[in-house]
Design a protein around this nucleic acid. Structure first.
Length: 826
RNA sequence: GCCCGGGUGGCGGAAUAGGCAGACGCACGGGACUUAAAAUCCCGCGACCUUUACCGGUCGUGCCGGUUCGAUUCCGGCCUCGGGCACCA
């Protein structure tokens, strides 16, 4: 009778069984070690793509493996549900964003369930629901209370296509990260989170994360951009004003030949306002103001500047130096003013050469000289201080210390550290996001919404303007309110929060998703947090992961959480490619997960995606590769079914190794070797691809064993059961079914992860390699654990070796027991 | 420009402490089964040389060099692809 692998019925059957029996529900259980496994939650765009499948397949293997190893595993899933696409759909198709989002969530949830991922769906959350965003607002209020949320008028990145501002982090190559429109500069009053207060901890605590990829640590380190140096002020000649500058090279202060202000510098504004500068200066400042940050900060941008007519006094040598304004100095880093040392800074040199400014060498190294007159290349290497008065002769390092000492003693400045990180701009001029819980009152000014009034509900059923402008501005019911402080009429803030705010605390909410009073229970969070394993795309290496770290540290500081870092271990998975490029609608190379699941089943899809490449690397999709995985499952299906009748009632355990024949011994060895291999691969390295290979090898060994005329069914049963258990995290439905086929009553998911039998891994004979001068000349079988003398003897008596060394002199013999013998001969 | 990763058969990828390069899979070739095809099962599959055949030999992990009895693995210098940052003083 034909017995086909009917994946469709099998998958439905077991998904239903798991659901009806609450298989993946978890609760706090102090008697078990906990394991919090989390995959980055998706934006409900409408359909699962292969990247999602990869992410969740990896996560499910980890969750199921840990669970079988005896951990109490929290494995939740939710929806990062606020964001622009919902709003665009509303504008284009007149569907309310909430409805569009809910529909998509329903579709994607069904697709996820079809994959058979072991989520505790009772903990599902969506960031766009009031019971969730209530606490996103709570986070805002807490930050506000702690002076970490503030409003300021700032030059911001404006996306003309999305009609909203963007955080610096969301500007990619000068364009909007979402729509790629060229970002413009706009002056607006906006809300910021003061993430810069945490810059030092965000960079230092990266050391607490040995379980993160080096790459991500580096990216964050660079992004935060710590620079050590000092700040000091220079007096302006014939004036009471001073200008403060920041430098990382205090050792070069004697080489300062001019200084530069950013065009936005307050002093420049003042000069222009007071008309104390030439028209030429005003024109220049105005011109630069209209230049976008992108054009301005490009390294290719030409350096432009203008002389103000003013001079500063270098406090170290009392020299008068001209003050310039130039486009290459940025207002929002350091003090917005620099001391220029053209001899030792490429940018300053380029500027000095263009505008004919003097160049003084103050560091002498191997390739330059103190007397150099026609400097064409900035010297930035090591050396000693010259032309620097009393500091001459000091090394760069000693010089920096000495100058900072001098600055501090003379009270003109101090040693400081600057970070490249800027505060996080969280205002968005959009509708579909968490409303900022702030009220503007004519009497009281900015008033935070009291906690008891949360959530500030986002009004639904409203009209969208095709302009893309936030519709909230026109919802009178929403805007008009009363001031919580004085009770007079007041207006609500109409900006919403960046969706990254929603996703920077969701992992804590999963620990107690139904708490109505607080974002999460302290007790539950203390049990589950931090996330033991976080898995997602490397594209979140900076933004999401840094914001989440920031908020976790903040929650720690206000005594809400006991951990300072949210994610102990991080796995960044590679992309899914087709024909060498990322799958995308525009390239027309998308393979839909549904199609694959319909054709081969979820288990095949999962298996292929885990087998085809190691998780952190990009994976090339191959239709034929999927076929291969499907073939493998069918092979196992036939094998197990063929044996089912014969092994079902066997209860005896395999006999001692020395009582088995050679082929049976090999099978038993392979079984236990595979247990060890798969366990190591999953536990230590997340090498799912090699774990699958090992399981395939065990299946191949079982196939070879079928030729054995007197099979030992106790060993066969052990091999088959082990194979199925090892394969369960990868292909759970398939393994459940076969587990039942061979007569087991209790779900395979509930089986303990097997331990290998050390005695089965002892071989009495091993094949070792015999080399001459490092080249393999023969292989011989020897009893395992043969000692060096025995091996030497065997090698020297070997006929091939005798033949090949007869004209040579044996200089040395290297022996690695159970592995190889290398004869060095001349 | 700076900082990270990669580079191994026709392809995806193995080699976990310096010790048999190419596990496992895909593709391909041959055979068995079949009226035939599909499916399945078995065998082969880095290049070159030698040989009727077996056997055997040389080269081979981006390139050049080094350390070592022995290097995909360690060291130095390059080439190249991918990613991140980029006028941050």
């Amino acid at each position: 009778m034909e017995n086909k692998y009917d994946f469709e019925n099998i998958e439905n059957k077991w998904q239903k069984y798991w659901k009806e029996n609450d298989f993946y529900k978890v609760k706090v259980d102090e008697s078990k070690p906990k394991y919090y496994n989390l995959e980055m939650f998706p934006y409900p765009s409408g359909n699962l793509h292969m990247g999602h499948v990869r992410n969740y397949a990896i996560g499910d293997v980890v969750a199921r493996f840990k669970s079988m190893c005896g951990y109490n595993v929290l494995h939740p899933m939710g929806w990062d549900a606020f964001g622009l696409p919902a709003e665009n759909a509303a504008i284009q198709h007149s569907i309310p964003p909430a409805q569009w989002t809910d529909t998509n969530i329903a579709i994607m949830k069904e697709q996820l369930q079809k994959l058979g991922v072991s989520y505790d769906w009772d903990r599902e959350l969506a960031t766009c629901k009031p019971d969730y965003y209530k606490f996103t607002q709570w986070m805002f209020l807490k930050l506000y209370e702690n002076n970490l949320a503030y409003k300021k008028d700032a030059g911001v990145n404006w996306c003309p296509s999305c009609h909203t501002v963007l955080a610096n982090e969301q500007v990619v190559d000068g364009g909007c990260e979402r729509c790629e429109a060229k970002v413009e500069k706009k002056q607006l009053e906006q809300w910021f989170f003061k993430i810069t207060d945490y810059a030092e901890r965000l960079i230092d605590d990266l050391d607490l994360l040995p379980g993160w990829p080096e790459k991500v640590i580096t990216m964050q380190t660079n992004w935060i951009g710590r620079s050590e140096g000092c700040q000091f002020s220079m007096a302006i000649a014939d004036s009471d004003e001073t200008i403060s500058v920041f430098t990382t090279r205090p050792d070069t202060v004697f080489g300062v030949t001019y200084m530069v202000l950013a065009p936005e510098h307050p002093l420049v504004k003042k000069m222009c306002a007071e008309n104390t500068v030439k028209q030429e200066v005003k024109d220049f400042v105005e011109e630069i103001e209209f230049t976008s940050d992108v054009d301005r900060t490009s390294t290719e941008a030409e350096k432009l500047g203008v002389f103000t007519g003013l001079y500063a006094i270098n406090p170290f040598n009392e020299k008068k130096i001209p003050i310039w304004i130039a486009n290459y100095v940025l207002i929002d880093y350091g003090t917005g003013a620099i001391m220029a040392v053209p001899a030792h800074d490429e940018r300053d040199l380029e500027f000095a050469l263009k505008y004919n400014l003097p160049i003084t060498t103050v560091i002498q190294g191997d390739t330059n000289s103190a007397a150099d007159e026609d400097v064409q290349e900035a010297y930035i290497g090591d050396g000693i201080m010259v032309n620097s008065g009393e500091f001459d002769g000091l090394s760069i390092e000693a010089g920096q210390k000495a100058i900072i000492d001098f600055i501090e003693k003379n009270s003109i400045g101090e040693g400081t550290i600057n970070y490249r990180l800027r505060d996080w701009l969280i205002s968005r001029q959009r509708y579909w996001g968490t409303p900022i819980p702030i009220i503007h009152c004519e009497n009281c000014g900015v008033v935070p919404v009291p906690y008891k009034d949360l959530p500030v509900l986002l009004p639904e059923n409203i009209a969208f303007k095709p302009s893309g402008e936030s519709p909230l501005k026109y919802v009178d019911d929403f805007i008009n309110t009363t001031c919580p402080t004085c009770g007079k009429p007041a207006q609500r803030e109409t900006d919403t929060m960046d969706t990254f705010v929603c996703s920077s605390w969701y992992f804590t909410r999963f620990t107690s998703p139904n708490n109505a009073d607080l974002p999460f229970d302290r007790e539950a969070a203390d049990y589950w947090m931090p996330v033991d394993q976080y898995i997602g795309g490397v594209e979140h290496a900076i933004l999401h992961l840094m914001y989440a770290r920031f908020l976790t540290k903040f929650l720690y500081d206000i005594d809400m959480l006991s951990c300072q870092e949210p994610f102990s271990n991080l796995l960044t998975q590679g992309m899914v490619l087709k024909d060498g490029v990322k799958m995308s609608k525009s390239k027309g190379n998308v393979v839909s997960p549904e199609e694959i699941i319909d054709k081969y089943g979820a288990d095949t899809a999962r298996l292929f995606i885990l087998f085809a490449a190691p998780p952190e690397r990009d994976l090339g999709w191959s239709d034929q590769g999927v076929e291969g995985s499907y073939r493998f499952l069918n092979r196992v299906w036939r094998l197990v079914n063929d044996y089912a009748e014969n092994i079902r009632d066997i209860t005896a355990k395999p006999a001692e190794m020395d009582k088995l024949d050679e082929a049976t011994k090999d099978l038993r060895y392979k079984t236990h070797f595979t247990i060890k291999k798969v366990t190591d691969d999953l536990e230590e390295r997340f090498n799912f691809n090699t774990a699958v290979s090992a399981i395939m090898e065990l299946s191949n060994t079982l196939y070879s064993y079928r030729n054995n005329p007197n099979p030992d069914l106790t060993v066969v049963k052990e091999a088959i059961e082990s194979l199925l258990i090892l394969l369960t995290p990868f292909c759970p439905h398939f393994c459940e079914e076969l587990w039942e086929v061979i007569g087991n009553k209790e779900s395979i998911t509930l089986q303990a992860w097997p331990e290998y039998d050390q005695t089965a891994l002892i071989k009495d004979e091993v094949e070792i390699v015999v080399q001459i001068n490092g080249k393999v000349r023969d292989r011989v079988k020897v009893p395992s654990n043969s000692n060096k003398d025995e091996l030497r003897q065997i090698a020297l008596e070997n006929s091939r070796i005798v033949e090949l060394t007869k004209d040579k002199k044996i200089v040395k013999i290297i022996i690695i027991p159970d592995k190889l013998i290398n004869i060095v001969a001349k």
